[in-house]
């Protein structure tokens, strides 16, 4: 474990972009945890006399149409958006990794059918699927999580399947069986740990995608409802004022979204280097 940490440190030193992404991710998580304590204003209480003020020393990101401090709302939204993304991704990761690796290991007809189903699902406009799911399940935050998890699932199944498939005839897999392990033990103890690094990369990239999806759904008015602070809703509310020049209503939540996704994407690329033991010297 300590060698992993040492290696991580070595990679981060040699790779400023990944270091930036790691720092950004850490910051995001810290903000999500500490939001209620560090926000300068209450994110919900409106103050109409102070509406639509541009960024200033008092309000770093300006105020919205109800006079609420946008910066405080951004901080509060971080917690919600990250929770949605993390919950959705962990659901789909656990289910997808297990289903995918067993299918990939067993092979045969079942695997072919699952593979085909996943291919069809992946090529289908997933955002539309998510919309339909939220519509059918009801307009609630849990349902945004479920919908996002479901549209992420095929990626994990496919990924785990492919990764296990290339390894299932490797000598060390057969050696594990000659060494007295059952099929199930081989999948759980040998194959899953081996595909985890690659999956971690996928998780990181998917977190960004999940945030975009959840924000997109809220932007449309699905899922999270006003006045809850959420990046997508904030953009949707600000959209009305873009034609009249109040750019900060859209730009700051947009920037927050962008930075969050950027951090996760860059971190995903960096993780690839850190977790690959072959890169360790």
């Amino acid at each position: 474990m300590s060698s992993t940490l040492r290696h991580a440190g070595w990679v981060l030193r040699g790779n400023p972009v990944t270091a930036f992404a790691a720092a950004g991710t850490f910051l995001l998580v810290a903000v999500a945890v500490l939001a209620p304590w560090i926000a300068p204003y209450d994110p919900i209480t409106s103050n109409v006399s102070n509406a639509l003020k541009p960024p200033s020393a008092a309000h770093w990101a300006g105020t919205d149409q109800l006079g609420r401090d946008i910066f405080s709302r951004l901080l509060a939204a971080t917690r919600l958006d990250l929770t949605i993304a993390a919950a959705a991704v962990s659901l789909s990761f656990v289910a997808g990794a297990v289903i995918g690796s067993f299918c990939g290991y067993v092979g045969g007809r079942l695997d072919r059918w699952v593979g085909r189903l996943v291919d069809v699902l992946m090529a289908f406009p997933l955002f539309v699927l998510a919309m339909a799911l939220v519509a059918a399940l009801g307009n609630r935050v849990e349902n945004i999580i479920i919908a996002t998890a479901i549209i992420n699932l095929p990626f994990y199944i496919r990924f785990a399947r492919a990764e296990v498939n290339v390894r299932r005839h490797a000598g060390w897999v057969e050696a594990a069986r000659a060494g007295g392990d059952s099929h199930a033990a081989v999948v759980l103890r040998f194959l899953l740990p081996n595909i985890l690094p690659a999956m971690a990369v996928q998780i990181s990239l998917n977190l960004g995608w999940a945030i975009l999806n959840a924000a997109g759904l809220s932007f449309l008015g699905l899922g999270v409802q006003a006045p809850t602070p959420e990046w997508g809703i904030m953009v949707a509310e600000g959209a009305r004022f873009i034609g009249t020049g109040q750019w900060w209503l859209v730009a700051f939540p947009g920037l927050a979204l962008m930075l969050a996704v950027l951090c996760f994407n860059l971190l995903g690329d960096g993780l690839r280097d850190i977790l690959d033991p072959r890169m360790r010297t």
């Binding site: 960004g208 975009l212 997109g216 939540p253 947009g254 979204l257 962008m258």
Partner: peptide
Amino acid sequence: GVCVPTFVSGLLLIYVFYY
């Protein structure tokens, strides 16, 4: 490109090119 959601980039384009 992948980090900026379409609804944000669309609005920003409107701000720049229209407003």
